[in-house]
């Protein structure tokens, strides 16, 4: 195979494009800019850590099933771990969102980073909602019967039936987590490509 043919291969072009945009030292950097040493920059990675715990506890719940998480002590513990890691996930994500909003984190060509963050938030809300209606207890029955009127009023009830436990569980453990994790991965890669947004004074050239 000639060099020209190798250069034309989609694998060669994709590799060159990927390593051009995101060389290894940029993907896993050794240092961060000085302005990142602030507590407000901690909430993004807190959200990521909570997401990992959500997925890990969710995998254990999926392996053992509802009988286990309703009736055994360890099941209760993992079920509660799943709930509280979601609470931490949303808590940290909201503070992260406020921090990024007030520092206008879409500056410097970072609009796609901001947009993927917003869409990840929406996907996470959907994932949490389908989780609440998939608990298989009185709480989930109450939430789904309350939510059905709102969902039906939008017209979405014809394809998204919150009273259909099987459908809600599939959305909760397959479709929406896939979307949330994929979007989070794109979001983090965008942060690595464009770098962490600097404070306004750093962008304007002034230093404290």
């Amino acid at each position: 195979m000639s060099t020209a043919e190798i250069e034309r291969q989609w694998t060669t072009r994709l590799r060159k494009r990927a390593t051009g945009h995101l060389p290894p030292e940029k993907l896993l950097p050794d240092t961060q800019p000085a302005y990142v040493s602030s507590w407000i920059y901690v909430f993004g990675v807190t959200t990521l850590a909570a997401l990992m715990l959500v997925i890990l506890s969710g995998i254990i719940l999926a392996i053992r099933g509802p009988q286990w998480w309703h009736s055994s002590s360890i099941g209760h513990f993992v079920n509660s771990t799943h709930l509280w890691s979601v609470e931490i996930f949303f808590f940290a994500m909201i503070v992260h969102l406020w921090g990024k909003f007030f520092m206008a984190a879409w500056r410097g060509g970072r609009s796609l980073t901001w947009v993927t963050g917003v869409v990840t938030f929406l996907a996470s809300v959907g994932t949490a909602f389908t989780g609440y209606v998939s608990q298989t207890n009185f709480d989930s029955q109450w939430i789904s019967t309350q939510a059905k009127d709102g969902i039906n009023a939008t017209g979405a009830g014809s394809i998204f039936n919150v009273l259909n436990l099987g459908q809600m569980l599939m959305w909760h453990i397959v479709l929406l987590p896939l979307a949330a994790v994929l979007l989070t991965t794109i979001h983090v890669l965008m942060v690595r490509v464009k770098g962490v947004v600097p404070p306004f004074e750093e962008q304007n050239g002034a230093t404290k």
Binding site: S37, S38, W39, I40, V42, V95, W98, G99
Partner: peptide, 25 residues
């Protein structure tokens, strides 16, 4: 209560000194 705690965390994150920040400066 959760919303109040988030606001407190946000304000605290803005004003609390980060460990090692002065050394880095």
């Amino acid at each position: 209560i959760v919303i109040v705690l988030m606001i407190i965390a946000f304000i605290a994150a803005l004003f609390l000194p980060f460990p090692g920040r002065s050394r880095r400066k």
